[in-house]
Amino acid sequence: MVATGTMFIAYLKHICGMFSIASFRIKKAMAINMQHEEKMNEEKMVIIYKGLICAIDIHRKAIEFSQVIIKSFEGSFFCLIVASMICLTSTLVQIITYNSTEQLVLRLIYISVLYLYMFLSNYTAQDITDHNEYVFATVYNVEWYVAPLHIKKMMLFLLQKGTKTFHLILGGIFVASMESAATLMGTSISYFTVLYSTSTKQLQNN
């Protein structure tokens, strides 16, 4: 769990950096356009084109890299999600039936570590989505509408791509986000409630 989680967070932070670089390239290219709007020549146009093309290329590579990472870790993510849910549910049940304070403390620490692990993984994945949206927010916020026609076409292409939200799907079944983390926590508590109710009824019948 530690190895998979650490590598996953490191890779995702790298992807966040790529999205930030893409945003910076767009800002820099459009800043050149605003500074030299009145005396725009072919050389300045080439610099702006190169900046925008570089931004688009970096953004594309970041998307591709994230998809490769998810595909590479797909089996590990599926096993981690299933194992985490089983461990959380069983540990919550064990807390109710603890025999000593030491056992209670150990199980509480165990649950806290699992919830923290779940939170950090989903928080980092949510960070990817936020950085991707920031790229297109940058496109919206720069004054692209005063740029020459050819640059406007490139910016409109970026704006069109921004209509699709980008999410990381872990294990092929789970969309990684803060909302999903809250759903997982709620699901583990629901399973615990069902197991506890079932075990209580069985004890009463016996």
Score class of each variant (00 low, 15 high):
residue 3 A to V: 09
residue 7 M to N: 10
residue 7 M to T: 10
residue 9 I to G: 08
residue 10 A to F: 15
residue 13 K to W: 09
residue 13 K to S: 15
residue 18 M to W: 07
residue 21 I to Y: 07
residue 28 K to V: 00
residue 28 K to L: 00
residue 31 A to W: 03
residue 32 I to Q: 03
residue 33 N to E: 14
residue 34 M to S: 14
residue 36 H to E: 10
residue 39 K to E: 07
residue 39 K to Y: 08
residue 40 M to H: 09
residue 41 N to G: 15
residue 43 E to F: 11
residue 47 I to V: 13
residue 48 I to F: 01
residue 49 Y to E: 01
residue 49 Y to T: 01
residue 61 K to S: 11
residue 62 A to L: 09
residue 62 A to C: 05
residue 63 I to M: 11
residue 65 F to H: 10
residue 70 I to L: 06
residue 70 I to N: 01
residue 72 S to W: 13
residue 72 S to M: 13
residue 73 F to C: 02
residue 76 S to W: 05
residue 78 F to D: 08
residue 84 S to Y: 05
residue 84 S to R: 06
residue 85 M to T: 04
residue 88 L to W: 07
residue 90 S to W: 12
residue 92 L to W: 02
residue 93 V to M: 03
residue 93 V to K: 01
residue 95 I to T: 13
residue 97 T to L: 12
residue 97 T to M: 13
residue 101 T to I: 09
residue 102 E to I: 13
residue 104 L to T: 07
residue 108 L to F: 13
residue 108 L to M: 11
residue 113 V to P: 06
residue 115 Y to E: 15
residue 119 F to T: 12
residue 119 F to D: 09
residue 121 S to A: 10
residue 123 Y to G: 12
residue 125 A to M: 03
residue 125 A to C: 04
residue 127 D to E: 08
residue 132 N to R: 04
residue 134 Y to N: 10
residue 134 Y to G: 04
residue 137 A to D: 10
residue 139 V to G: 00
residue 139 V to D: 00
residue 141 N to Q: 08
residue 141 N to F: 02
residue 145 Y to Q: 09
residue 147 A to K: 01
residue 151 I to E: 00
residue 154 M to L: 06
residue 157 F to Y: 12
residue 158 L to Q: 04
residue 159 L to R: 00
residue 159 L to T: 02
residue 163 T to L: 13
residue 164 K to T: 15
residue 168 L to I: 14
residue 172 G to V: 11
residue 173 I to W: 15
residue 174 F to T: 14
residue 179 E to G: 12
residue 181 A to C: 15
residue 187 T to G: 02
residue 191 Y to S: 02
residue 191 Y to V: 06
residue 193 T to R: 08
residue 197 S to L: 12
residue 198 T to Y: 06
residue 198 T to H: 09
residue 201 K to E: 11
residue 202 Q to L: 15
residue 206 N to G: 14
residue 206 N to C: 09
